[in-house]
């Protein structure tokens, strides 16, 4: 009686597991391809910037990482909302799978932001509105992952994480607005990254290609982490046993 029930309920993770397994290599490949193209544009084709000479090339990593860190948090919140609304365990697993990659990209954007700030404004850390919001976004990611790891019961961990992701995504615009308000008030916007170097079209293309590379990479990483989570959660299920015997 129990087995018949499991087959019905675990159908979707099983099909997702195999479906994702086939897709992951393609996404990794696409990510590598876009990355090489992006770097070629960024490092070889893009002209030297008259203000910052070569240091500005860091934006080919910094800006795509910043875009992706925000984009991933929103996607995570969407999966969370889907999971809470339709009670589908797969959506929760996707949200949990995205978080570490999002946190890593946020850290990359903070690190490259600091390295770009040093030659350009003479300080490793600039309390610029966007960098500060990026730092807060990093805390939101850490909060999500810390909450999920603190709860043993997977069902409660999924839902609690989903709720804090939703509360977080509602707060991100408020935080961003208040930080910009705080930044413009205190420093009069003299030192701020809003005045990015004049965007020659080739630079924009470079950044877009790198953003695509980051996107492909995120999908590949999230899918493979999701597969690991599925394996851990569904290890009692029938299809896992069959799959392992088939491989053995």
């Amino acid at each position: 009686m129990i087995n018949r029930f499991n087959k019905y309920r675990y159908a979707s993770p099983a099909t997702f597991y195999h479906f994702a397994g086939r897709l992951i290599p393609w996404f990794y490949g696409a990510a590598a391809l876009f990355c090489v193209a992006g770097l070629y544009i960024g490092l070889f084709l893009a002209p030297t910037d008259f203000q910052q000479s070569e240091a500005y090339r860091i934006i080919f990593i910094h800006v795509p990482a910043a875009w992706m860190s925000m984009f991933i948090y929103v996607v995570m919140a969407c999966w969370a909302a889907l999971g809470l609304a339709f009670n589908t365990r797969m959506s929760f697993m996707m949200a949990s799978a995205l978080a570490p990659t999002g946190a890593m990209l946020t850290f990359v954007s903070l690190w490259t932001g600091a390295l770009w700030g040093k030659p350009t404004w003479g300080a490793w850390w600039v309390w610029d509105a966007r960098l500060t919001s990026e730092l807060i976004l990093f805390f939101l990611y850490l909060g999500f992952m810390a909450l999920q790891s603190a709860i043993d019961d997977p069902r409660r961990a999924d839902r609690a994480g989903a709720l804090i992701a939703l509360v977080g995504v509602v707060n991100v615009p408020i935080i961003y607005f208040s930080v910009r308000w705080w930044n413009t008030l205190h420093q009069g916007a003299s030192v701020s990254m809003t005045k990015a170097p004049s965007m020659a079209s080739i630079m924009l293309v470079g950044m877009l290609v790198m953003a695509l590379a980051a996107w492909m990479y995120t999908i590949a990483a999230a899918l493979s982490r999701a597969r690991c989570i599925i394996l851990e959660r569904e290890r009692n299920a029938q299809w896992v046993a069959q799959m392992l015997e088939a491989d053995a």
Binding site: E54, I58, W111, W116, P119
Partner: peptide, 10 residues
Amino acid sequence: GGYALYVWGS
């Protein structure tokens, strides 16, 4: 262009 540390660092 002299910024090797920063560019290659990141």
